[in-house]
């Protein structure tokens, strides 16, 4: 990624377009042969020119209906795939937390999975080893950490995933609807940890459909509509307008 010119934690997007090609019925050679030369791939235009600059230390929430391009934008910033058009520069290291515990394997123990997931998120093995205790402590899984992951409840697995995620020291956290997991008490811990990360100057870009979470965490809200930035500003007014429209009140004549 060409992010070296930018300050760590800064995201700059200019005229970002993302077009997904969905060649119909792809997946079999039969379809390819039958459709032959005149196949036209179905196209989904997910982002239609997004301009966005995020400063270091901001916590930006993305709002928008399903299919408005939120996840696509997160994935682009997280470098899961590349934009079709436009420029995207990201300063510093990004940890894409689009799913907790990416790469977790049920047959491996908690410790082994922490190492796997941590390194996938960009830590070195040494760093993982140094943070191992903190990660286990945060996840509250001390006594189960040596047994295979398949014996964990789903709540325990998400807790472990979250714990690894917030112990990577990426400059930018890209978070998809996984801000708060587990029971009430653990959720409080999640929010406290996120506040801590914010204070230490990390940039957070996240998607959530829980407006209370948005208002609690975000310092700025960006509303996406049909792949474009519809509204951008302080959390309260944007959330209010968004809710008005969602509940069918005509926001504008």
């Amino acid at each position: 990624m060409a992010g070296s010119e930018l300050r760590n934690g800064v995201i700059e997007a200019r005229g970002l377009h993302k077009i997904f090609e969905l060649p119909f019925q792809y997946g079999t050679l039969k379809a390819l042969v039958i459709s032959g030369a005149n196949r036209k791939p179905e196209v989904v235009h997910a982002l239609r020119g997004v301009d966005l600059t995020v400063a270091a230390g901001e916590a930006v929430a993305l709002l928008g209906r399903n299919g408005s391009g939120k996840s696509t934008l997160l994935s682009l910033v997280g470098h899961i795939y590349e934009p079709t058009e436009g420029d995207l520069t990201v300063g510093g290291r990004v940890a894409p937390l689009l799913e907790l515990g990416a790469g977790f394997h049920p047959d491996l123990t908690g410790v082994e999975n922490i190492e796997l997931n941590g390194v996938i998120l960009g830590l070195t093995r040494k760093q993982v080893a140094e943070r191992l205790d903190a990660i286990i402590e945060f996840a509250e899984l001390r006594e189960k950490i040596g047994v295979p992951l398949r014996t964990y409840s789903s709540g325990m697995q998400t807790r472990l995933g979250f714990s690894v995620a917030v112990h990577t020291d990426a400059d930018i956290l890209v978070v998809d609807e996984v801000l708060a997991v587990g029971d009430e008490a653990f959720q409080e811990k999640c929010f406290a940890r996120i506040e801590e990360l914010k204070r230490s100057g990390r940039t957070i870009l996240f998607v959530s459909h829980e407006m209370t979470d948005v208002l609690r965490v975000a310092t700025r809200v960006v509303w996406l509509k049909d792949g474009r930035v519809h509204m951008d500003g302080a959390p309260e007014p944007v959330v209010q307008r968004y809710l008005e429209e969602a509940h069918g009140q005509p926001a504008a004549p």
């Binding site: 994935s75 997280g78 470098h79 899961i80 990004v94 894409p96 689009l98 799913e99 990416a102 790469g103 996938i120 998120l121």
Partner: peptide, 9 residues
């Protein structure tokens, strides 16, 4: 497949 959709190594 799923891991690729969520990570960037």
């Amino acid at each position: 497949r799923e891991v690729m959709r969520k990570t960037s190594f």
